[in-house]
């Protein structure tokens, strides 16, 4: 494979396979909801869409050291990042680049050794609903129905039951799972579970959504469907997203900006701007710009300089 990656003809053949057969549109009701920020308020309960608040996430000289039996291990070293309102930002890196640690620090589930993370100027001191997190393992509450799962964040925040129900129904509609509101998580497929988790996080109206390899456990076809779903969701809601993944293709397809991380310790090797339109479908993978960006990042991860990105 190593020799053939740069050649466009090979790539086209690969992409033809992906694009030809298995793609299907997720079953969310796109006709019921505004695709772009609406010019008039939606007729749905209250006005949960789109995100209107501004947000500024800044990560400043962040380091994280773990003390293990073999001595201290530096997982993250001098990380500087930022995410602005409505941005879709990915961090890509191999295992060992501390990308999960990075997201946990932003979520407030771990504390940094040095440096700081601020959201709208306030230093992150612990977890909170302003930074909603999506885990790879779905983390639905198995005893709650889909509806109750989506309501749960609001319940924790003391929202009344009527409003809770309306909000949950709204976001179940957004992710296309209204029909399954009374199902238990164990009755759903992996992709559906992750959509419930996304609806649950959206219902809490976070300033930013943190996603930790959200589609890592899904099969290739479902993954592609979910990527398209995620992109459309982001376009419609305008929610800010910081997502980590090891899948370069996924990062390029979804995000506007990519931080490429190196491993041992995790540092930011380069910040890459993805020069592609907001509205993307799977066919964009055939574009030269897409392929150049992807191959450039792959080269960075291989330890080469990437002419396509430097120039």
């Amino acid at each position: 494979m190593g020799g053939g990656l740069g050649s466009p003809s090979v790539c086209r053949a690969d992409l033809g396979l992906v694009g030809s057969a298995h793609y299907c549109v997720p079953a969310y009701p796109s006709t019921l909801l505004p695709i772009h920020p609406p010019t008039h308020p939606p007729t749905y309960p209250s006005t949960p869409l789109p995100w209107t608040n501004t947000m500024h996430l800044e990560i400043n000289r962040l380091s994280k050291q773990f003390d293990t039996r073999q001595g201290p291990v530096l997982a993250l070293d001098d990380i500087n990042m930022h995410v602005e309102t409505g941005e879709f930002v990915c961090a890509v890196g191999a295992s060992g680049s501390g990308k999960s640690t990075l997201l946990r620090l932003v979520a407030g589930l771990d504390m940094p050794t040095a440096g700081e993370i601020t959201v709208d100027g306030q230093v992150v001191m612990g977890p909170g609903s302003d930074r909603g997190m999506i885990f790879q393992s779905y983390t639905l509450y198995p005893w709650m129905t889909v509806q109750k799962n989506v309501e749960f964040g609001l319940k924790l925040q003391g929202v009344g039951s009527k409003e809770r129900r309306e909000m949950a129904s709204y976001y179940l509609e957004v992710v296309g799972l209204t029909k399954f509101s009374r199902s238990l998580p164990k009755q759903l497929s992996g992709g559906m579970k992750q959509r419930v988790a996304i609806a649950r996080t959206l219902a809490s109206r976070p300033k930013i959504m943190l996603m930790d390899e959200p589609f890592g456990a899904l099969d290739v076809q479902t993954k592609e469907t979910m990527q398209q779903f995620m992109l459309d969701l982001w376009n419609r809601t305008g929610v800010s997203i910081l997502m980590i993944t090891h899948d370069v293709d996924e990062a390029v397809f979804l995000s506007q900006r990519i931080y490429v991380l190196t491993a041992h310790p995790g540092t930011i090797q380069q910040e890459v701007f993805v020069d592609l339109p907001r509205d993307r479908t799977y066919t964009i993978r055939r574009d030269r710009a897409f392929q150049d960006t992807r191959e450039g990042i792959m080269d960075l991860l291989r330890g080469k300089t990437a002419p396509a990105l430097v120039g």
Partner: peptide, 19 residues
């Protein structure tokens, strides 16, 4: 992860314990 999810949804330790 279930407890951490609860925290990122805005839950407190007490709520994680009882709910």
């Amino acid at each position: 992860a279930l407890l951490e999810t609860t925290y990122t949804l805005g839950g407190q330790r007490r709520q994680a314990l009882f709910q």
